[in-house]
């Protein structure tokens, strides 16, 4: 499955990355080679194989429903690049 420049451009929006024309060209080539390399997996017959998403076979891990202290607001907001006394701030989200 060849990866086109248009594919890469579409993915860059999905991934929320702004890529310049030169970067798009370079990535189209690089990603194309990696994707071609990964294609070797299709050699394997895996119809009957169950996927393995977790390396550790654990199930049913729960925590009790007990409230614990939250962060003080100043500490919660301390890393925000833009904030006021109460909230994080972003460009208007109307109509997004």
């Amino acid at each position: 499955m060849a990866l086109s420049r248009a594919d890469v451009e579409k993915v860059s929006l999905l991934a929320r990355l702004q890529l310049g024309p030169a970067e798009l060209d370079r990535l189209t080539g690089e990603l194309g080679r990696i994707v071609d390399f990964v294609e070797q997996l299709s050699e394997l017959e895996t119809r009957e194989i169950a996927p393995l998403a977790h390396a550790l076979d654990v199930a049913n891990v729960f925590a009790d429903d007990v409230v614990k202290p939250s962060l003080p607001r100043d500490e919660a907001l301390a890393n925000a690049p833009k904030r006021d006394d109460e909230c994080y701030r972003v460009p208007a989200v109307l109509g997004e």
């Binding site: 997996l41 299709s42 394997l44 194989i49």
Partner: peptide, 12 residues
Amino acid sequence: AYYLKALKVRRL
């Protein structure tokens, strides 16, 4: 083709 396939090969 990619992610699910890779999880299956991971099992192998």
